[in-house]
């Protein structure tokens, strides 16, 4: 799986401050850590960034590329900032994160993707907001591909994102997004997929977020997810993405398949994986104490 590091983010206390103060050193240190952690891309989430977006992105892209060679994912709703980032991106192929399936977004951003031969994340968020189920996701996906093809964009440039919802808010939406993955290869042959993984644990206690992210990643992986936007500091998560934890993957698959599991024969870590899989898949209802039950 390809990994996109999410930590260079305007909402982060440390890095948000560095962005506002144009503190290149702090951001470059993070970029180096991301490269060392084996990230395939670095996400540059500058938020909507208002009228400073263009200037900020023009500054940020070369600052990061001064210390690493990784491609950068330009993560903002600010169209001018995206254009500025694409222009400044000289190492490898840039990624636009993201293009929603809304007419005004597609009209503005697809031509930019074509012009710069960039990759882009196609976020399945439609004119009416979040799709309600897998079928609406399928319809939005088809619409986006139609528009991209019209522009002459090749499928291998496109990463479809079926939208990760938090397990403690909309567990059933996780099931719809997974069900969408089943139809995805037929709807979008040649396209890739990605997911904003950490949102699954949004709102959960901080120290319990990693296990939710890890189990969710195992489940996505089995359903054919090709990349994920992840926490660059969670080494265990990266090991899972690289297939280095086959025993944990097998265990989560057993939960998914409804096979009987003898909890008493498992280590504490394995039991936690089983309990977390049950919560994510909706076999049991989430509560903050799910690992204690």
């Amino acid at each position: 799986m390809k990994l996109i590091g999410e930590n260079l983010n305007i909402v982060s206390k440390k890095y948000g401050k560095a962005l506002k103060e144009r503190d290149a050193k702090t951001l470059q240190e993070l970029a180096i850590q991301m490269a060392e952690a084996g990230m395939d891309y670095i996400d540059l989430n500058i938020g909507p960034a208002g009228k400073y977006g263009e200037e900020l992105m023009s500054w940020l892209v070369p600052v990061i590329h001064e210390v690493v060679d990784l491609p950068l994912a330009l993560d903002t709703s600010n169209i001018k900032a995206i254009a500025a980032g694409l222009k400044a991106h000289k190492k490898g192929r840039a990624m636009i994160n993201s293009i929603m399936v809304r007419p005004e977004r597609m009209e503005a951003l697809l031509p930019l993707a074509k012009e710069y031969d960039a990759e882009f994340v196609g976020l399945l968020w439609g004119p009416e907001g979040m799709p309600r189920d897998e079928n609406e996701r399928g319809a939005l996906c088809a619409e986006l591909l139609f528009r991209a093809t019209e522009q002459g964009i090749a499928p291998e440039r496109i990463y479809i994102d079926p939208i990760q919802t938090p397990v403690n808010v909309q567990q059933s939406q996780i099931m719809s997004a997974l069900a969408f993955m089943k139809m995805f290869p037929d709807i979008a042959p040649g396209c890739s997929s990605t997911i904003g993984l950490s949102n699954v644990s949004n709102g959960a206690p901080d120290h319990l977020r990693p296990i939710l992210n890890r189990v969710m990643l195992i489940i996505w992986k089995r359903w054919g997810m090709q990349s994920a936007i992840v926490d660059c500091f969670d080494k265990e998560l990266h090991a899972i993405a690289r297939g280095q934890r086959p025993e944990l993957e097998a265990l989560v698959h057993k939960v998914e398949d409804g096979e009987p599991i003898d909890m008493s024969s498992l280590t504490k870590e394995e039991q936690d994986y089983v309990k977390t899989a049950r919560v994510i898949l909706g076999y049991t209802l989430y509560s903050d104490s799910w690992l204690e039950l």
Binding site: L285, Y286, S287, D288, S289, E292, L293
Partner: peptide, 14 residues
């Protein structure tokens, strides 16, 4: 909120 309802019952049980 169903998740918070469950959590409170867990806490009361604890």
């Amino acid at each position: 909120d169903v998740n918070l309802a469950k959590q409170l019952n867990v806490l009361l049980g604890n």
